[in-house]
Design a binder for these strands. Structure first.
Length: 396
RNA sequence: GGGGAGAUACCUAAGUGGCCAACAGGGAUGGACUGUAAAUCCAUUGGCUCAGCCUUCAGAGGUUCGAAUCCUCUUCUCCCCA
């Protein structure tokens, strides 16, 4: 498989493949690396496996000698890419943005080599911070309302009578200006970024630059088959610990495995076909171990797999249970549970108890009035809530 | 600027004076079954010192024995006209 084919395997749309082919050929001949732009907005801290798909593609370019240009959207973060949610994002402070950016780079660094000369990291506040209102007007004049309203997300919201704020409409222009500023040859982005990527092309043309090739990557769906999102809890965070990550992948629906193998591992198509032909559980174990190995280590992945089997198939109690201490006293169970973090409120704990989901030292307790004596100097005892929350409790 | 419609719990969405902590669906959580898959079934889904009490229906006031429901003002959104 040549590079172009490999790129195509990991992408859903390339504008245009012909242009990319020519660029690659030219670059190979001249030895001049392509500048491959990828932008991220440090609006939150959790980068998940879905975000990793374009980053893995970026790594592919890097492996072939091209230069990743990572844009930290510390300017655009001020507004956040419009998503159609109508909740107002609280404005991020400079510190938030910096902290998020640092976390992002750390997590991205597990996939792409960020070292000097191998990668270029830019912040778009570099140019946005220097613009005054008249510059903004000039930026705004580079497109039209009709053009911007073509964007799916805006179109949809207009149709549903939801607000579309003016500043949101500036977002694609800002992202486009990034491309002009860094003279991108190629820009990568998720499926939903196509419009923004196009805007970069258009704006580069206006600035007399060669328009970038736009490549979008398929959306990696969450473990439940819906869009991967932290708010659905169906995501696999890149900063999750090995055990958690392994467990999350194991909860993936069978239908999702093929995509996950292709987009989140390095197996080739034949290997994937072979794996999928076997027992789904075995295939998923392979998938989970491979993903955990890539981000943590092979040993961590093996350990996670062993612990997982023990805990969920043999229903054993895991080894590393957090120990919480409370004042020695007599507690009603719901209150004690809330105090040790098993539940947000006593009402929630009460529900868990009534639902039969609470065990003390292995025995189900379904009496909400159950009293627990925590006595100084005694061995800790175990409270389990649901399948996977364990806490040891002891008097402090 | 003028006129009209609307804001209900995580989401969608009923409710137009007492039967409302608020129908229904989704989601989520717990349980059964299992491969922490899917499908299915059951329960729960504001808080608390839990047979009771307290705080919720955009916000602030008001009417009433009693308001998510009626009135006034405010904020926000959408539509039509200018």
């Amino acid at each position: 498989m040549n590079l172009l084919q490999e790129i195509q395997r990991l992408s859903s749309e390339i504008i245009s493949a012909d242009q990319l082919e020519k660029m690659l050929a030219k670059s190979a001949a001249s030895g001049e690396a392509l500048r491959v732009k990828f932008g991220i907005d440090p609006t939150f801290t959790d980068v998940h496996l879905g975000h990793a798909v374009p980053i893995r593609l970026l790594r592919l370019f890097q492996k072939h000698g091209h230069l990743p240009v990572l844009i930290i959207g510390d300017g655009t973060a001020r507004l956040g890419d419009p998503t159609g949610r109508n909740d107002q994002r609280p404005p991020l402070t400079v510190e938030d943005v910096e902290r998020n950016a640092a976390t992002y780079l750390e997590q991205i660094g597990t996939i792409v080599d960020l070292s000097e000369g191998k990668c270029e990291v830019r912040r778009n506040s570099e140019w946005f911070g220097a613009m005054d209102f008249f510059d903004c007007l000039k930026l705004a004049s580079s497109s039209t309302a009709a053009r911007l309203l073509e964007r799916d997300d805006f179109k949809k919201r207009m149709k549903e009578n939801l607000p579309v704020h003016l500043h949101e409409m500036m977002y694609p222009l800002m992202q486009g200006l990034d491309s002009v500023q860094v003279r991108a040859d190629v820009e990568l982005g998720g499926n939903d970024q196509l419009f923004n990527l196009h805007m970069g092309r258009q704006m580069q043309e206006r600035a007399d630059q060669r328009p970038q090739v736009c490549i979008t990557t398929p959306l990696l769906l969450g473990t439940d088959g819906r869009k991967m999102s932290k708010s659905y809890g169906n995501h696999v965070g890149l900063n999750a610990d090995a055990a958690d990550m392994y467990g999350k992948v194991m909860s993936l629906s069978d239908d999702g495995m093929e995509d996950w193998f292709r987009l989140a591992t390095d197996f080739n198509d034949e290997e994937i076909a072979t794996l999928l032909a076997g027992h789904p559980r075995e295939a998923k174990d392979k998938l989970a171990q491979t993903i955990v190995s890539g981000i943590h280590s092979e040993e961590a992945a093996k350990a996670a797999a062993v612990a997982f089997v023990a805990q969920f198939r043999k229903k054993e109690v895991p080894d590393d249970i957090p120990l919480k201490t409370v004042d020695a006293s007599s507690y009603s169970l719901p209150v004690l549970m809330k105090n040790v973090g098993l539940g947000q409120s006593t009402s929630e704990a009460r529900r868990l108890i009534q639902g039969g989901g609470v065990r003390i030292n292995g025995d189900v307790v379904n009496d909400v009035k159950h009293k627990v004596e925590v006595i100084a100097g005694e061995e800790p005892f175990l409270i389990q809530a649901g399948k996977r929350r364990f806490v040891n409790v002891q008097a402090n």
